[in-house]
Design a binder for these strands. Sequence first.
DNA 1: TACTACCCTACCAAAATAGTAGACTTTATC
DNA 2: GATAAAGTCTACTATTTTGGTAGGGTAGTA
Lengths: 135, 135
Amino acid sequence: MLSAKSQYAFKALTYLTEHYKKGPVLISEIARKKKIPLKFLENILLELKKAGILDSKKGKGGGYYLKQDPAKIKVATIVRLINGPIAMLPCVSLYFYERCKNCDEKSCGLHDLMIDVRDATLEILEGRTLKDLVV
Amino acid sequence: MLSAKSQYAFKALTYLTEHYKKGPVLISEIARKKKIPLKFLENILLELKKAGILDSKKGKGGGYYLKQDPAKIKVATIVRLINGPIAMLPCVSLYFYERCKNCDEKSCGLHDLMIDVRDATLEILEGRTLKDLVV
DNA sequence: TACTACCCTACCAAAATAGTAGACTTTATC
DNA sequence: GATAAAGTCTACTATTTTGGTAGGGTAGTA
């Protein structure tokens, strides 16, 4: 399941997508409109900025805005960033790989199955962008 | 990600699948062979028994065994039982549905996306059984 | 230079996860 | 029927993750 943090991130990003190219948006405005705890949202937006998804302007008239075209920001990227691995097992994760304890990957049926699940999931998450989230 | 508990459950079930129709298997044997903490495994097997997946025999010569044909036990069933929801959002879960806070499901892009992810995942998890986990 | 708004570190509480303890019950077999 | 084997059950504890808060620092703009 996506964490609350991830859901907040998507709500904020959706809001910023709707305001793309319309100047910086205040954290407090996003928090109010999307009903997200203000300080928690600050952390999330800062994280997205450090990852290169958002940029910000300080001082009066400042705020956050999308650094790239929302049609170029994949949903998969956001999930990995805020929520962590997409795969159901560490040993089949592309970006967070860890070897399994006590399980030979070459002869593990669960391993093979979870690769299929991962690929099916990625096919969707890699193919959709923030733009697709706005209806 | 699947919890450690879920991974233990699958290891144990795989072992029992390999011993299907060969009489009861000791908890301690499974724990030793699959390197699972004994008491933790006890809880897991008991849970699987209460759910109707396993059955057991008490006393000397006792142990656990699969109640049904491993080719008829879906992976999805086990995941739901031990790990919980398969969907990435409560509002798109078939078995653990909960309404979203502050999100109208009819106009939520994330909602629609996650339904697609859920269906792609289920297509695989509902189609494979314990038998498929044994290579 | 004062105000605004993001930046940053640290902290805290609650919930979920992982694992343990120990007493109890049932059953096979000698 | 005694005994030992083996699952049953309740409860507890420790650790990690998650969700959220506090408050001062820093930079930009008018």
